[in-house]
Design a binder for these strands. Sequence first.
DNA 1: TTCATAATAGTAACCATTACTGTCTTGGCG
DNA 2: CGCCAAGACAGTAATGGTTACTATTATGAA
Lengths: 149, 149
Amino acid sequence: MVTIMNKVQANAKPAGLRMTRQRRLILEELDAPGRHPTADAVYQQVRRRIPNISLGTVYRNLEVLSQAGMIRKLHIGSGQKRYDRKLHKHYHVHCVQCGRISDLPGGPFGDLEEVARGNSDFDIIGYELEFEGLCRQCKDSSPRQREPN
Amino acid sequence: MVTIMNKVQANAKPAGLRMTRQRRLILEELDAPGRHPTADAVYQQVRRRIPNISLGTVYRNLEVLSQAGMIRKLHIGSGQKRYDRKLHKHYHVHCVQCGRISDLPGGPFGDLEEVARGNSDFDIIGYELEFEGLCRQCKDSSPRQREPN
DNA sequence: TTCATAATAGTAACCATTACTGTCTTGGCG
DNA sequence: CGCCAAGACAGTAATGGTTACTATTATGAA
Ligand SMILES: [Mn+2]
Ligand SMILES: [Mn+2]
Ligand SMILES: [Zn+2]
Ligand SMILES: [Zn+2]
């Protein structure tokens, strides 16, 4: 009866994934478009509805959901991992001032992989590309501190 | 927080840094071309000559040397940071099997930044690009475990 | 409704890195 | 050369992010 469960099974990855309240809220938190929250940010949000949810539960679910291909785990910069519900290939811009991460509109660039293939004896299977810069806010306001996503 | 960076730029030369035995060996460890060791790998190597060197000393020096612009700190993938003596802009290939990191021969690609600038309201100042794949060894041998750099 | 087992809360452990502290070195100056 | 301020050190504790463990609870297929 519940659509999300159907979605899970429609997405066809894992038998044996149960849809718990915790998991549903974590997923909903990522459903808002354009967000790339850290595990802790998800935790803080979900905590408002399930005050005693465990941080471990958040981590476990983020892992299990990305294993199942329902979300993507991002390793951007040197800090915490980020999670992204947008599954198709796209690039990110990372504000070096406040840590904000935004999608870069516009599809993937020309074939970087091809160039790499010609120059390496590695069997190239992909690449990671992310841009760095200053977001609009940080560009034209006095330096603030970290207020990610 | 006035330190080495300033001194170095003032003196136009990495003097102002004292040259200790520890620092020299750490630097020598990175001088071997094509290496991208982790802090721990450097530690293990230098330890053979200075058995009681502190891991903290290795970290402190790697930090101070990259602040001074004598080495570069790399954040590749989700694991430990890597250090690179090669200062000019170049790309890396990362073996997803064994973790090895190699330089990609051939200079920087065309203007990725320009494309990003057109698509974002961020003030783009640079980008990080790294390729993933299987190194020669992992490509044609049975799966091994992590034996980085 | 039952029941095997997936998932949870709570907590401990882990790993990479950084911070602290008292002692030892280094190197510029005489 | 030796002096000595402060840079660097070893040893160790602390931190931050993440994962592992465990006894208990909740899910959902039959
Ligand atoms: Mn995204
Ligand atoms: Mn390199
Ligand atoms: Zn910003
Ligand atoms: Zn390999």
